[in-house]
Structure formats: structure tokens, C-alpha cells
């Protein structure tokens, strides 16, 4: 379980996060929605422990990201919004690099690389340098690299950007499968349609504050997520 407690972050006088509180349970596919500049990426980077925050805490079960960062990271995976990865490595070299970092066994990584590369249709390109890849192909490599060490928590920042329709569908299926295994998936997105169909929980952020949070069923009782989002964002 992830617990975000009163998370605050400022850049100078500009308060970007104004006390975020969220709870994400095992098996959740949690969508984090908001307009540009609302504080989504700042929240995600704070959750990962790569951006120091001013106050509050992010707990993974009982461990705090402030004090037990390395231990938490062993079970964590991150898919950034812009897949900047080592362009001088081949796709396969990059995946093995990440697997080595998480000390993933040879048997498990080789199996998973082949499995996910085939599913995302990048298996014939793994021996090419990442520098020659398109944005979508880089995104696929980042997605595979996030999954090959069997993480308990997967945090994604706009994971569907640049993916072709088949890969988008495959990724959604992978996400559903992983949550059935009890893993946590937390991702930010602008695509409300995907969030509505895929997620069981959602939080809407505006100007660094959570303005709505709960299960998708509760939130979208009588209307679509898009209508609710537009109403909430314009009302606040």
C-alpha cells in the first residue's frame, strides 16, 4: 500500500503541491488526472524519491521514501513521460543493464525480455541502437525495462504517449494482468477515456490540490469522466 501524507512542495514562492493526501492499495489501477502544470509530474517524482519535498511523507507499507529510498526502489518501477534512455546502447543491452541493477536472475530476465518484446512487437529490433528508435519504440523499451524485475509498484507518467493502437491495447492488457497479481499501478494521463475504462480508482489534481478522489464507480455514477473532470476543473 502507498500512503501519501500531506505532501507539500514549493519552487521558491510558488507552491506546487499544497498538501496531497492519497492512499493506493494492492491491485489498484490508479489514474492521476489533471491539467498541464497541475502538479502531476511533481507528485510522481516526489513519490519516487527523486525530487525532495518540503513536508509530508510518502509511505510504501511502513517504509518512508525519505529514509528507506533504496529499499523501496528495489520493488519500484518508473516509466517517465519522455523516454530519454541511453542512445548508445542497443535495446537488449539497455534491458540487461536495468535487469542487472535490480539483480534480476538470468533465467527470469531472459524469459521476460522475450515475452514482453514479442507482445509489444519490438523483438526484432532489440539488437539495434536505441538512438535509431522512434519515440514509440523507445517508450516500449522503457515499459519492458520497468517490468522485467517483477516490481510490486509501477508508477507511470503518461505511459500511452507515442504508442501505436496495438501497443496501447497490449499495455492495457499487461496492466490489468499485473493488478490481478496484486501489484499497484499508478499513472498520470490526459486521456480520460483510457482512465475511465481501465482504472478502478482516480484522483483529480488542480493547482497542487486534490479536488476529487475515489473509486471510478462512485465518481462516474451518472455521467462520463470527461464531464465530471470539466465540471470540477472549471468550478474550482
Amino acid at each position: 500500500m502507498i500512503t501519501i501524507k500531506n505532501l507539500k512542495k514549493s519552487y521558491g514562492k510558488n507552491e506546487v503541491l499544497k498538501g496531497i493526501n492519497l492512499t493506493i492499495n494492492e491491485g489498484d489501477i490508479y489514474a492521476f488526472v489533471g491539467s498541464n502544470g497541475a502538479g502531476k509530474t511533481t507528485t510522481i517524482k516526489s513519490m519516487l524519491g527523486i525530487l525532495p519535498f518540503d513536508s509530508g511523507d510518502v509511505l510504501y507499507d511502513d517504509l518512508s521514501i525519505k529514509t528507506d529510498g533504496l529499499k523501496i526502489k528495489e520493488e519500484l518501477a518508473y516509466i517517465p513521460d519522455n523516454p530519454d534512455i541511453y542512445e548508445h546502447l542497443t535495446g537488449l543491452e539497455y534491458l540487461n543493464f536495468i535487469a542487472d541493477m535490480y539483480e534480476t536472475s538470468e533465467e527470469y530476465r531472459n524469459k521476460k525480455i522475450k515475452e514482453y518484446a514479442k507482445e509489444l512487437e519490438i523483438d526484432t529490433k532489440l539488437n539495434d541502437k536505441i538512438g535509431s528508435y522512434s519515440h514509440g519504440m523507445k517508450q516500449k523499451i522503457v515499459i519492458i525495462s520497468a517490468l522485467i524485475h517483477d516490481p510490486k509498484v509501477i508508477i507511470m507518467d503518461e505511459p500511452f504517449v507515442g504508442l501505436d493502437p496495438i501497443s496501447t491495447h497490449t499495455l492495457k492488457e499487461i496492466m490489468k494482468k499485473l493488478t490481478k497479481e496484486g501489484k499497484i499501478i499508478f499513472f498520470s494521463t490526459h486521456v480520460l477515456d483510457v482512465a475511465e475504462k481501465l482504472c478502478n480508482k482516480i484522483a483529480i489534481i488542480k493547482n497542487g490540490k486534490i479536488i476529487a478522489e475515489g473509486s471510478m464507480k462512485e465518481l462516474t455514477k451518472n455521467s462520463s469522466l470527461e464531464d465530471i473532470f470539466l465540471e470540477l476543473v472549471s468550478n474550482e
Binding site: 537488449l92 538470468e106 530476465r109 531472459n110 525480455i113 522475450k114 523483438d123 532489440l126 539488437n127
Partner: peptide, 9 residues
């Protein structure tokens, strides 16, 4: 095009 198995480092 083949994916070769790599050893752990």
C-alpha cells in the same frame, strides 16, 4: 534479429 540470453552482472 535474435534475442540472445545474457549473463547476469
Amino acid at each position: 534479429k535474435k534475442i540472445k540470453d545474457r549473463k547476469k552482472l
